[in-house]
């Protein structure tokens, strides 16, 4: 049904690609160079693909541990977000025009978006310390709480665009609310769920400040970002090692994206089948 994209579209896209790939190219080739080669020129293609940097990072004690911590934090927080946030968003989106409670709740949850991290940084660490939550599971709970506001914002906007007929007929048939939500609404939210997962997943994976303030007591608690920053302050100008570490750290999130972007396009595929 749609027009084929013109040649200009492709040119535009390719220009953008160049702008994106050049810095990436630097990061990748740097990681594959031994240090001596790097100090000569940072732009030259590596004379051979030297894997020593990657091996050195992986062999460093604490790397594997930090990967496990980060995977744990990211997965638990993401699952938590997906359990909690669409649920509240659905309730708000369907009731905010009728009942004041939901409308006010919506605005109450939105306030969080506007508050810069600095306001709550220190008190948050105090609260976490009072609850004995300065550890890996503790930080996951805080992440779920912190993801509520932006998540609700995105989901509510999306649910407004989802037609209500399907669920109405389910209610007519006597289905329970939770059942209707889970079986009918939640699958319809797929594109937004994928988006929120990518957004929050990236955030939890790459976050620096909260882990720094909450998980500094023992290296056993370090997340990947803390590990890499710590590593960076120990090896300062050794870019090859740092970039090798950074590339290793971003691989999993790239995989997550590759799987999730299909979900974002879910609607498109359905439409195409219908058409």
């Amino acid at each position: 049904m749609k027009k084929k994209p013109s040649i200009f579209t492709y040119l535009f896209l390719i220009c953008g690609c160049v702008l994106i790939i050049f810095p990436m190219y630097l990061a990748v080739i740097t990681a594959f160079k031994p240090t001596e080669e790097l100090t000569k020129s940072i732009f030259a293609f590596p004379s051979s693909f030297y894997l020593g940097n990657f091996m050195e990072v992986i062999e460093k004690s604490g790397f594997l541990n930090s990967v496990i911590n980060t995977v744990f934090v990211t997965v638990v927080s993401c699952v938590g977000v997906i359990l909690v946030v669409p649920l509240v968003s659905y309730a708000i989106a369907r009731n905010m025009d009728k009942k004041r409670y939901y409308k006010y709740l919506y605005y109450f949850l939105l306030i969080g978006i506007f508050v810069p991290f600095q306001v709550k940084m220190m008190p948050l660490v105090q609260v976490m310390s009072n609850f004995n939550m300065l550890n890996v599971p503790g930080i996951a709970v805080v992440y779920i709480a912190s993801a509520v506001c932006e998540g609700v914002f995105l989901y509510v906007a999306f649910i407004h665009g989802v037609p209500g007929e399907l669920e109405e007929s389910a209610y007519m048939d006597g289905a329970g609310t939770l059942f209707t939500y889970w079986k009918i609404i939640f699958p319809l939210l797929k594109p937004m769920t994928a988006t929120v997962l990518i957004m929050d997943g990236l955030w939890f994976w790459n976050d620096f400040f909260l882990p720094l303030l909450a998980l500094n007591k023992t290296p056993d608690n370090y997340t990947l970002t803390l590990f890499i920053y710590n590593f960076k302050s120990q090896t300062t100008v050794n870019y090859s090692l740092i970039f090798a570490g950074l590339l290793l750290a971003m691989l999993p999130i790239m995989v997550l994206y590759v799987f999730l972007q299909k979900q974002i396009m879910g609607g498109l595929v359905n439409g195409a089948v219908k058409g």
Binding site: L212, L213, N216, L226, Y229, S233
Partner: peptide, 9 residues
């Protein structure tokens, strides 16, 4: 314990 950005911590 030696975190990066040690002073902030």
């Amino acid at each position: 314990v030696s975190p990066s950005d040690a002073e902030t911590v």
